[in-house]
Simulated assay, not measured.
Amino acid sequence: MISIKGLSKVFKTKDQDVQAVDNLDAVIESGEIFGVIGYSGAGKSTFIRLLNRLEDPSGGTIDIDNQEISSLSKKELRLARQEMGMIFQHFNLLWSRTVEENIAFPLEIAGMPKEERKKRVDELIELVGLTGRGSSYPSQLSGGQKQRVGIARSLANRPKVLLCDEATSALDPETTDSILDLLVDINAKLGLTIVLITHEMHVIRKICHRVAVMEGGRIVEEGDVLDVFLRPQEKVTKRFVDQVMGDPDREDSLNLIKEKYPVGEVAQFHFVGERTHQALISEVSRKFQVDVNVLHGKITQTQKGAYGTLIVHLEGEKEEIDRALEFVKETSVEVEVAPNV
Rank of each mutant, 00 (worst) to 15 (best):
I257C: 12
K238N: 03
K258N: 13
P232R: 09
S253Y: 04
G264Y: 14
D227H: 05
F269D: 12
K260P: 06
K260G: 07
D224E: 14
T237V: 06
P248E: 00
L226R: 05
F269I: 09
E222C: 12
E259G: 05
K235T: 10
V263H: 05
E265F: 09
K258Y: 13
L254C: 10
K260S: 11
L226D: 02
V225D: 00
L256W: 12
R231I: 11
E221A: 07
V225R: 00
G264A: 05
D249K: 10
L226V: 11
N255G: 10
D224R: 13
V225T: 09
G246H: 11
Q268S: 08
V244L: 13
L230F: 11
R239V: 11
R239D: 03
D252W: 08
F229R: 10
Y261N: 01
Y261L: 14
G264S: 14
R231F: 06
Q233T: 03
P232G: 11
R231V: 05
G223K: 02
F269Y: 15
E259Y: 09
G246V: 14
S253P: 04
F269E: 15
G264V: 06
Q243L: 12
D247C: 04
E234L: 06
V241N: 02
E251W: 13
A267E: 06
D224L: 09
V228H: 05
E251G: 05
E259T: 05
L230A: 06
G246M: 14
P262A: 11
I257K: 07
V220T: 12
G264H: 08
Q243I: 14
I257F: 03
K258V: 01
Y261W: 14
V225C: 10
P232H: 13
E234G: 12
Y261F: 10
L254W: 02
K235A: 10
H270V: 07
M245A: 15
E265C: 14
R250I: 13
P232L: 15
G223M: 10
L226G: 01
D249S: 08
V263K: 07
K238S: 11
E265W: 12
D224N: 11
V241M: 01
D247S: 04
F269W: 12
D252E: 12
D252I: 11
V225W: 01
P262K: 07
I219H: 01
M245V: 15
V236Y: 08
Q243G: 03
F240W: 03
P232K: 03
F240D: 01
K258P: 00
P248C: 13
R231A: 06
V228K: 01
P232I: 12
V236A: 05
V244I: 07
I257M: 14
P262S: 09
V244M: 03
F229N: 04
K260T: 06
I219W: 01
Q268D: 07
I219S: 00
S253E: 11
L256N: 01
G246S: 11
H270Y: 04
V225A: 00
K258D: 10
E222Q: 00
M245S: 08
A267I: 09
P262H: 11
Y261V: 12
P262N: 04
E259F: 08
H270E: 00
V228F: 12
D227T: 00
E222V: 08
V220F: 08
D224F: 01
V244E: 05
G246I: 15
E251C: 00
D247M: 15
G246F: 09
E265G: 10
